[in-house]
Design a protein around this nucleic acid. Structure first.
Lengths: 195, 195
DNA sequence: GTCTATAAGAGGATAGAC
DNA sequence: GTCTATCCTCTTATAGAC
């Protein structure tokens, strides 16, 4: 059973995703939760605070999941780790497309009143994700798995474009990828650029 | 010099794109145009009518442009026509990324009050675009340029995915593609799927 | 065509009782 | 913690003068 606070966040997430921040109003959230608006303000001091508590949770869950991918701790080749991170990321996203759609919505079309804070937060979380990838790429270069001509920044750009598009495709077509398909995608990405 | 009606549409387009339908209010549009809200209602009977007059114009301009691609009237091979349509579409989109971003915004995240009408209108315009492509693909199959195993519906799906992603990439990275890059993209698409 | 004035309602947020 | 009651502002839209 969810606490009142969690119920509010659950309902608000759904509405912020489907209707957007501006079009979602406190009264509607409260109606669905079964409380009065004044009760919501006991848990969150404003609509904006409620929104960011959800936004940070969604990003936080995703990044912590990636940081804790098991293979990262094993004593294996960095390119295998890279593949594991990609695979786990895509699988994680495909398990809960709604959350990725939420992140995409507020990345592509941030509400004016939130735009500055959103930009900062977005940068913080993406940097944290990029750190993992960048370290693995540097490892690959050090161990001569990738040529020393390869720029880490360019790799990151390609990698992010690649994953972003996989996620957008899942959102638009609403189709989950199988393990084999994910593997094939990775092979295509890796072989066409880095071997 | 723009007429008052066109000024309203110009300002409203900008705000509907940047702030979204719900967050854009009549007062702000009118302030920027330099009229009073009551004057706007002389030209458009509601905010919704104003929105759809813009939405239909953006789609209409795009589809009519594609329908009037010169090569379509020439006596040339259908696969060359197909390439021309692709090239012209991408060039058209890259010339005015804002309009494509507008269409993407209301496709991915339609405001609740407009969702039904938007769905119908979207289907109408996409069907009209698909008709052009489908006819060319059928021509290709008839003239044995494409194998008879190829399903027109599948080709359309691939083609639409391909163009949608080019457009999204232009929106996200804000980079216009050169003629050579467009050509290379097409070769990659065509050769990897249909030869 | 454009204005002033205003209706009618929805929005976020708060005060204070229980 | 949750409620009732309410404040104040913003919103779309209309009536009617010029």
């Amino acid at each position: 059973m969810l606490s009142t606070k969690d119920k509010i966040k659950y309902v608000a997430f759904k509405l912020f995703l489907e209707k957007g921040y501006e079009a979602t109003n406190i009264r509607e959230i409260c109606n669905e939760v079964g409380i009065k608006p004044s009760s919501l303000y006991f848990y969150f001091k404003s609509k904006e605070e409620l929104f960011f508590s959800i936004y940070d949770e969604v990003w936080g869950d995703k990044i912590r999941f990636i940081e804790n991918v098991e293979e990262l701790k094993k004593n294996i080749s960095p390119d295998v780790k890279l593949y594991s991170v990609f695979k786990n990321t895509v699988e994680y996203c495909s398990k809960d497309i709604c959350r990725q759609k939420f992140l995409l919505r507020y990345h592509l079309f941030p509400p004016e009143e939130l735009i500055k804070v959103l930009r900062d937060k977005f940068k913080y979380w993406v940097d944290r994700e990029n750190l993992i990838i960048a370290n693995l790429v540097r490892d690959c270069i050090e161990k001569k798995i990738l040529g020393s001509r390869i720029s880490v920044a360019d790799f990151l750009k390609d990698y992010n474009k690649f994953t972003t598009f996989q996620i957008i495709e899942m959102i638009i077509s609403n189709i989950k990828l199988s393990s084999t398909e994910i593997n094939n995608l990775w092979l295509k990405f890796w072989s066409s650029n880095y071997s």
